[in-house]
Design a protein around this nucleic acid. Structure first.
Lengths: 213, 213
DNA sequence: AAGGAACGTGACGATGCGTCAACTTATCTG
DNA sequence: CAGATAAGTTGACGCATCGTCACGTTCCTT
């Protein structure tokens, strides 16, 4: 059917396909090994051994286990970021903005719990949080969205940097506690976090007058 | 002057003194090396090299670089925890409770900025947070204090677990942003975080009635 | 079909790991 | 005070991991 390939080569060159497959193999192996041994105790060799590939091949794809970890994190960040942004873009009130952000986040976390736990597990310390560039970009986006909402008059003129920090802190910390509960309830977590900020925003000092609104 | 020692052996046996000194030497060397290379890239050997001791001696004091790191963290936690607890114990209002907690935390962070930065630095990821047992104990203490305040009638009956999580998240995240500013202003950070919770607590759903107060 | 380029392979030297037998020296004992 | 004991230090050792690279294989091009 095609001038340059037999019928078995479907869509892309074989080179390209094995490249994608190898990358995937490594990521899947890493997810498994991280979950088993914990991130800290895992070595590049452990990941390679959980793979049919040779040690040298690993380094054609990643330079370290940290890079593998980041790739996993970034994958998550890229999946959730557009949803969060969209949710906030269509918000017509403070409540829609805040509630949409928290609900989307908590629902994602709950749906991807396995991934989250695998990623959090670590040998020597009980908990680890790493912010990759992609995740930091998500924080910046939240701040930009807040700045825009302030410019639009949707939000009072609060400190967008601290507000962003507070939202991020509450989101991650409550997500953690939520997952630890017997039956994680995303609506409960959403209600709590949203109410906190709905009430808080009213009381927060605006930037022009240093007093409560 | 003493029956069992010469005048040079002052207060404790020499064994005991060198033990304390070696431990301190390792901790100081580690602080320096972590700050220079970042936690992730540091090896036990790097720490040992920054010390007059032999490799084997290191393992008489710590089993890994993680344990050294934890010891550093625990040291901080033990310094700040009593202050936070005391501040909350003497609080006669919600505002005193919240404000005391945040002010104490932010002031400590600002005063010990060097330590904080050294501890946060990491090679491959831009940020790391590790919760050691001692730090987790601090979180539990905060929750206990909240539960007691609720039992006393000082606080409405909110979800103490989520409230603790929210306070912790906001405290750490805002502290991070505060330190990043040109001139860290602990009062500004305290005002922001306190106002957020003072307003938020009013709006938060109480546990008995599932609605706003 | 032949040449070239891309990529996988696994062995290699270098480095770090945790251990341990030998040594040093503080402390105890008589 | 001298000898005995045991606490603590030392650095070399065997083993594992590191990242690299010369080589071989396979895909792609012409």
């Amino acid at each position: 059917m095609d001038l340059t390939t037999t019928t078995r080569a479907r869509v892309a060159g074989k080179r390209e396909r094995t490249k994608q497959q190898n990358r995937l193999l490594i990521l899947q192996a890493a997810r498994k090994v991280f979950a088993e041994l914990g991130y800290g105790a895992t070595t590049v060799r452990d990941i390679v051994r959980a793979t049919p590939l040779a040690a040298g091949t690993f380094y054609n794809y990643f330079n370290s286990k940290e890079e593998v970890f980041q790739a996993m994190q970034d994958e998550i960040a890229l999946r959730i970021r557009p949803r969060l942004h969209e949710e906030r873009a269509k918000a017509r009130s403070i409540e829609e903005f805040i509630l949409g952000t928290f609900r989307t986040f908590f629902e994602y976390v709950a749906s991807d719990e396995a991934n989250f736990h695998a990623i959090r597990r670590n040998t020597d310390t009980l908990r680890v949080r790493m912010d990759t560039p992609e995740i930091l970009a998500g924080f910046h986006e939240l701040r930009s969205d807040l700045e825009e909402a302030i410019a639009n008059g949707l939000f009072p003129s609060l400190d967008p940097d601290y507000l962003m920090a507070a939202i991020v802190g509450v989101a991650f910390e409550i997500a953690e506690r939520m997952l630890r509960r017997a039956r994680p309830d995303t609506e409960d977590a959403t209600r709590f976090a949203t109410a906190l900020f709905m009430g808080g925003i009213k009381a927060l000092p605006t930037i022009n007058s240093g007093d409560t609104a």
